[in-house]
């Protein structure tokens, strides 16, 4: 069992990024925002290199990886190199995407699928082809409303609870489960 240990590409940046994540895990929202912001640039570079033949998929996969990292952020072990953790998740989602595509190409005519005329620059985000906002609408109310009010409109748990008539713990559970359900919809499970 050969472990694929990618040694720190972030290097100097890694320690800073790791501190931002640790602050974020402790509940520091601006630090967590900064972490995700830098992470998305890092993921974009990492995935663009590995998806050279599918440039249109890069931004979708950046978003899917961000969602995965957010949903599984409790699995980061503070004693472990941050890059190893991030790259393992990004690679897992990359392999999952390629497997999904392979399965889909077996069912559809692969010629219809070729739409590879895009020129992406390395620095800026291309538009994602899949709209997470639309996918959000597929979630049941008890998950969608907490996400819309708390995560998109920035209301507090208490305000969201009052507005929706849900209990505060149901609001928190709704956000948590909703984001996991969103990831499931993306990979085609739901």
């Amino acid at each position: 069992m050969q472990r694929m240990q990618e040694t720190g590409r972030l290097n100097a940046g890694e320690e800073r990024l790791r501190n931002l994540l640790l602050l974020g895990l402790a509940g520091d929202e601006p630090a967590y925002h900064a972490f995700l912001q830098e992470l998305s640039a890092h993921l974009r570079a990492f995935l663009r290199k590995r998806l050279a033949r599918l440039p249109d998929e890069v931004e979708d996969l950046v978003q899917e990886s961000l969602l995965a990292i957010h949903n599984q952020r409790h699995t980061y072990d503070a004693g472990q190199p941050l890059t190893a953790w991030i790259h393992a998740i990004a690679k897992y989602k990359l392999v999952d995407l390629l497997r999904r595509r392979a399965r889909r190409d077996l069912l559809t005519d692969p010629l219809d699928d070729e739409s590879a005329f895009s020129s992406a620059s390395d620095t800026e985000a291309a538009d994602a082809r899949r709209d997470l906002g639309k996918l959000l609408e597929q979630l049941p109310e008890r998950q969608r409303l907490p996400i819309v009010h708390m995560k998109l409109e920035g209301l507090s748990v208490a305000e969201t609870a009052k507005l929706t008539g849900m209990s505060e713990s149901a609001v928190k559970v709704g956000v948590h489960r909703g984001l996991k359900a969103l990831a499931a919809i993306i990979r085609g499970d739901a």
Binding site: E29, H33, L36, L66, L67, H70, L132, M150, L152
Partner: peptide, 10 residues
């Protein structure tokens, strides 16, 4: 998406 994920993150 980044803003959405970070907002209210406990």
């Amino acid at each position: 998406l980044v803003t959405m994920l970070a907002t209210g993150a406990d």
